[in-house]
Nucleic acid binder design. Structure first.
Lengths: 209, 209
DNA sequence: CATTATGGGTAACGGCGTTACCCATGAGAT
DNA sequence: ATCTCATGGGTAACGCCGTTACCCATAATG
């Protein structure tokens, strides 16, 4: 399919690509989004800015790659948190892991949800990557439904709604609207309230079509 | 207390100040956060950038003023939406108004919640202004508690949790994670689910301390 | 009328994303 | 083996940005 030359070329490009991304991530995490400039990345790896442009097409493309990486990390964290057997406590663990991860890597969270890079909008492929970070959550919700803890419903839909709730609480916390002492309690109260609405029990509020 | 001269001087400064803010808002709403530069504001009002710096101290101060204005508008919208008598439908109206306002003025929403201006963090006074935008919501929750629709609880706390839920759903919608057709339904489902947890009825989930 | 403080305009500094230009390098042809 | 030529990366510039040092006109004070 490819000549050995093309393979080698491509391998070299891939190596350069990961080098660039590694250094960009380093800048992002250690100095924040403001330090993420094309010049600093280029000089940091000992190359000229031209390389970044031929390889990523511009800052937009580079940030898109970081955006994907951010959700890939979230996905990893979510999968590690979904080993618990009991479906309901597993959902709890996933929510807690979501908040912990957001607070632990605020730079990524800003890129992912707070438009830290001024004009950036994720591509549709990037949004798909983001979507896949919540596979574990969907599976946990499905397990809750299958085991009868939750009433019947669309696991995908319920997972999205849980995500919205978790994201809202974490987002306000990071934005400074929730004081640190109360933020954790409010997060737990909100997640418990939403989860409660989907329980199989008694009365039929909160169904999803 | 003040000499007439000082009064006149101050009046002139206040007029210049509102002129600057009006033009900044105009730029923000019509061209988005990227167009909000000190140079464009200055040339737009026919002055030099120096005026902006003597009056606001820098871009940070100017954006802080816009941040306050954004929450002042939200406050106004919320108060207009809180004329309904029945407490529970009033809460519903407030939530709907919150989402409608966020979608109608995305530029403000970005300044308020998505760090549209790269390094900006609101001052504590600005956060207080933000807080006051939710007075109507707190009052509605208190009315729900007083009328027995909600169980006993801290109205302030419950209002914050409702805010977090609404914000999460709207934020994901604006970020592109919720397709337009489903966003409204998800918002309603989430708000219904959270509200349901605080109803006075039967079982005691979702209390707030 | 002379002096002095104040406030705003000019023009610059350093940094940003981006790109036009140029040259070295190496593949393919003769 | 030499030549031609396409390609990829470095240099340096362009036009922005936020910010500020400098200068001068204006107006209050003696």
């Amino acid at each position: 399919m490819n000549t050995p030359y093309q393979d080698a070329q491509r391998a070299g490009q891939a190596a350069v690509r990961t080098t660039i991304l590694d250094h960009s991530i380093d800048l992002l995490v250690t100095e924040g989004p403001a330090a993420l400039t094309m010049r600093r990345i280029a000089t940091g790896i000992g190359a000229s800015t031209k390389v970044l442009y031929t390889m990523f097409g511009g800052k937009e493309g580079l940030v898109d790659a970081l955006y994907r990486e951010g959700f890939a990390r979230l996905r990893r964290v979510q999968q590690q948190a979904s080993r618990t057997e009991d479906p309901l406590t597993r959902l709890n663990d996933l929510a807690a892991a979501y908040r912990a991860h957001a607070l632990a890597e605020p730079a990524y969270y800003r890129v992912m949800f707070e438009q830290a890079v001024p004009g950036f909008r994720p591509s549709t492929e990037a949004l798909d990557v983001a979507e896949s970070a919540f596979d574990a959550s969907v599976a946990a919700v499905q397990a809750c439904i299958d085991s009868g803890v939750f009433g019947p419903g669309d696991a995908h839909e319920i997972s999205k709604i849980l995500w919205a709730a978790a994201h809202g609480a974490v987002s306000l916390e990071i934005a400074g609207h929730f004081p640190p002492e109360t933020a954790a309690r409010r997060f737990d109260t909100l997640m418990a309230a939403v989860g409660h609405a989907f329980l199989a029990a008694e009365h039929g509020q909160g169904r999803t079509s």
